[in-house]
Amino acid sequence: MGITGGIARSALRQARIELRVQWMSWTALGWLVFPAIGLVVLFFLRDQDVMGSQVTLAQIGIPGLLAMNLVSTGVMGVGGQLQTERDDGTLLRAKAIPHGMQTHLLANVLVFTATALIPVIIMVIAASFMVDGITPRDPVAWLRFAGVAVLGLFATLPIGALLGALMRSPVVLGISSLFLYGAMAISGIFYPLGALPGWLQWVGQVLPTYWLGIGLRSALLPPEAVLLELGGSWRVGPMIIVLGAWALLGLTLAPAALRRMARKQSGSQVAAARDRVMSRGY
């Protein structure tokens, strides 16, 4: 079996328990409420066309909702989780047992992959009953959808890990979430990028959110929707390259940040966090 097999099995067991714990609690309901509201709003916009095209606001908005869900779970979810675990002693416990830290971080990757993808899958299925022309048409389109979603997670999870490892206080993490929502606003995930001023379009096209959005639209929307995209193309090649580059950047930087975080984790740090929460409430 070897050490690697042991780590993988422990991580799987931990992920299974964590997922059971998370999805059998009220927290899970919280993750589904916001997407549900989004779907209902878009349902009422199902006849509203976008910039005089055949495409409706609902058709644009649903991939946008999926992208937003993936990115916020990948970045804020992971970041917040790491911060919580650093404060509440989960990471210290992991550090005190052999191979504990590697296993724990691997389990977190599995947990957040599932936590990000489960609502997305539920939303795609629910939306297929509510709005026409937002369901993958064939197995190839389904595969493309899955591929883009996973690539999008790889591009965002490491960013979340980086933030969670580097940012000390929940307040700082909260502020950085404002930047995240700002980034989503200029990524064309709810309205075509072409509607923005030229310089903002350029900024938007650097962000992974834009490319995740276009990738999801390419998998979900009918072919004629491509006319709303910049240059009238789904730009599959550039999408893979840009998301891949973000993933590579994140996967290069995150392990070092996580190692530093793990190295600095100590009982005194946990005790300080406990005192902080006891006195300030967060």
Binding site: G6, R9, I17, E85, G89, P98, T103, V270
Partner: peptide, 23 residues
């Protein structure tokens, strides 16, 4: 360790079995 609120929703035996497997 002086635990505080980690693994709050895990079951007692479950955590012990899980951590034991690492050894």
């Amino acid at each position: 360790l002086q635990s505080w609120r980690d693994h709050a929703r895990w079951r007692v035996r479950e955590l012990l079995v899980h951590l034991g497997e690492f050894y």
